[in-house]
Amino acid sequence: MGFELTQEYIFGHLNYWLFSVLMMTGLYIVVAKGNLVKKIVGLNIFQTSVFMLYISMGKVTGGTAPIFPLDMQIDPDVIYSNPLPHVLILTAIVVGIATTALGLALIVRIQEEFNTIEEDDILKIERAITQAENAIHGESMGGPA
């Protein structure tokens, strides 16, 4: 890879690195924390940092928002940022909130069934249920589920 660690290079890539760090913070919350609501918030952080990555790719230095003057008399000297990532992310945000709501609804149902939203407790209860079923039906039902 032919790149040099010049100051320009570092500042040109600092934004990608920042978003990677944010993304990993979100991933850490999802993997390491047991509370389901907290996991959803972590997923949101992850998601938002992906959005930032996309939007930062569409930015052009010295550019402005991709909205023309009302009279459509476009000054050829004005640079506009790339509108395509904006469109993709715009729809992704709204779809993201809809899927987040679906996840939260699942959490509410889990709370009602298991009376807890901690992953460890849920696993414990499920293991107890499996053992109870095995004790009743014996191993002939196919062994431990």
Binding site: V37, T48, F51, A65, I97
Partner: peptide, 22 residues
Amino acid sequence: LDAVDVAFTEAAVGAGISTVLV
């Protein structure tokens, strides 16, 4: 980053609705 539409949506969705839902 010049994405005014996206900022608009994020502010309304992320700070408004998602907080209410959580």
